[in-house]
Design a protein around this nucleic acid. Sequence first.
DNA 1: TTGTAAGCGTTATCAT
DNA 2: ATGATAACGCTTACAA
Lengths: 337, 337
Amino acid sequence: MESVNIKQLAKALNLSTSTVSRAFRDNSDISKETKEKILAKAKELNYQPNHYASNLREQKSKTIAVIVPELANNFFSQAIHGIERVARDKGYHILIYATEDDYEKEVSFIRHLHNGRADGIIMSVSGEANDHTYLNELSQKRLPLVFFDRVYEDIVTPRVITNDYDSSFAATQHLIKQGCKQIAYLVINKNLSIGKFRMQGYIDALAKYNIPFDDRLVVDCTNSYKKNETILKRMLLDVRPDGVFTSVERLAFATYYACYDLKISIPEDLLVIGFSSLEIAPLLNPSLTTITQPATEIGIQAANLLFKMLERPEEINPSEKIILNSKLIKRRSTERN
Amino acid sequence: MESVNIKQLAKALNLSTSTVSRAFRDNSDISKETKEKILAKAKELNYQPNHYASNLREQKSKTIAVIVPELANNFFSQAIHGIERVARDKGYHILIYATEDDYEKEVSFIRHLHNGRADGIIMSVSGEANDHTYLNELSQKRLPLVFFDRVYEDIVTPRVITNDYDSSFAATQHLIKQGCKQIAYLVINKNLSIGKFRMQGYIDALAKYNIPFDDRLVVDCTNSYKKNETILKRMLLDVRPDGVFTSVERLAFATYYACYDLKISIPEDLLVIGFSSLEIAPLLNPSLTTITQPATEIGIQAANLLFKMLERPEEINPSEKIILNSKLIKRRSTERN
DNA sequence: TTGTAAGCGTTATCAT
DNA sequence: ATGATAACGCTTACAA
C-alpha cells in the first residue's frame, strides 16, 4: 500500500501535520478556509488517516468484537445483524469470531482481544467448560463485556437474555393443554444456563399438571446431524412420546427429519414445538409452532448496553440484566384435530 | 485498559524490549532459556503485544474485511462461515460490513478501509449503481480484493462465482420438462451480473424449447416483503403462470406465502424452483426444489484466493475466476403427479 | 545472544 | 490560527 500519509498531505499543502490533523477532528481551532482546503486536497490524494496510528495514539480502536458459537445460524446471524446496525451508527467496526462451541477457541479469542484490538466484547458463550476465570481478567482490565442469550452465570457482567424459563413453561403447558402426556425435552447442553432454565420451565410445567417426570424423555443431543438422527429415532421408537419440545431450533428440524423417515406424522401422532428464530416457520410441513426469540432486538440491546459501558461506565451496574420476551407462536405442528 | 506493555514486561525481567519482542517472533536469535523465561512472565502478567503498535510498525494488520449486502441471510452467513474458517487458520481477524444493498455504504466502507485497517477485502457487491470506479482506487493502491457471488463485471479482480447461467438453464429446462408452458422468472436486480446471467439461462432454455418469451412473466421484485406480496399476487392472478423460477431464495418464500393465501397449490397448480441455500428445503410444504449454491465452499475459496494474493501476489492473475457448480436438487415443489 | 535507538502515522501539548 | 515536538507500543537495523 503506497497510500498517502499525513506528512505528504501536509507538504503538498505547505502546512504542518498538526494543522492537517486538526482538519479531521472538529474540536480544535482551525480556520474554515484551511480546513476546506485540506479536506479537498485529502480527497484528491485519497488520504485516509491511518487507523492504527490513531488507535495507538488515542488508545482506543473504535472496534468491538462479537464472539458467537456459530455463524451459519439463524439466531446468531440475526443478532449480529442487530449489533451491526447499532455499531455502524456509532461509527464502530465489528470483528467477528466463531468458537464452534470450542472452549479453547473461546479462551484464545478472549485472550488475544486484550491487546487493544477491540474496545469491548459482545459474546454468546460456548458453554463447554466450567472454568470461566479467564473472563475475570477482562473485568480487571476493564475491557467491557456484554453477554447475550448464552451466558455464564458465575461471571458478573451485563447481559441481554430472554425469559427462557417462562417461555419453556408456556411451551410445555401448551403441549399439555393440547393433550400430551409424554413430552420429550431435547437439549444440546444441559449445563449451559440456557439449557438449565429452559429445562426447569419444562419440569415445573409437568409438575403443575401432575405429569410424572421421566428421565428417558430428556434427550441429550449433540451438534452432529448423524448422531442426533440415531439418538432421536431410538427415543421416538422406544419411548413413544406424544409431544416433543426442543430447546434449540436445529433439534426441531432433526425431529421433523426423523419423523418423516419413521412415518410418524406431525401433529397427528406427535406434537412438536421448539425454540426457533426461523422466519419461514409457517412454510414448514407442517408449519412449526415456535418460541421465537427477538434475535435482532437482542443484538441491538446488547450493543446499546456495550456502548453505554464504553461511553458512561459509571452509569452501568455490572450485574445489569435486560430481559426480553420471546413469543409463543402456535402453528400446525401442535394442533390437535 | 491498564494492560502491561513491552517496557514493563522488559523491566520486570531486567531485559531490553528488543529481547522481549524477539521472544514473540520465532525467527530472531534468542536463547531458549530467556525466551521461555519471557513467555512465562508474559503469561503471568497477562501481556499481549499491542496489535495496533505492531501493525503500525509492520504496515499490515492481519485482518481482512468482508463486505456483504446482508447478514441475516442463509447464503451469506454460510459464506462468512467459510471465510472465517480459512482466516482463522491463517491467524487473521475478520471485520464485517453489511451494505444493506446501499451503494453509499458500500463506497464508504471501501473508502474507509484504505487506512490500513485491513490487508484485503472479500466482497459480494450491492449492485445498486453503475459507477464502480471507486473500486479501481483499490487496485491502484493494491489493496487486494476478491469478489464472490455478486460481482461487478467491469472491475478486474479475482472472483469466485457459480455456474449461474447453466444452473438457470437447467432449472428452466426442468420446469419445461415437467410440463410448464408459462414460466415466471422472479428477480430482484436485473442489472446485477447474477441477475443477468441467471436470466439469460432462463431465456435461452425457453428458446430451446420454442416457448415464446413473455415480458409479463419477468417480474421485478424488491427487498420489501409487502411490496413483493402485492407484486406477486397480482402476477399470479393476472398472468396465471404454471411455473415459477426465483433467482433468489427470498422470492421462493414469497411465492409460497402468496400461493398459500391465494389457495394456489404447489405443485398441483404451480411448480416452483429457486436458487436457495436453505438447508431445510426438504422440510418445506411442499419440499422445495432448489438450485443450491455451495455457499460455505464459495467462502472458503474466496478466502483462499485472497490469501494467495496476500502471500504470493505475483502468482495471481487479476482476472482469475473460480467457478463452482451449484446443484439442482429436485423435490416435491416441481413434481407432476 | 542481547541492547540501543530510530521510526511506523497519528494526535496533544505547548509555543508562537 | 498554525507549527514544533514528544509520545503511543512495537519491531528491526545496527552496535556491542
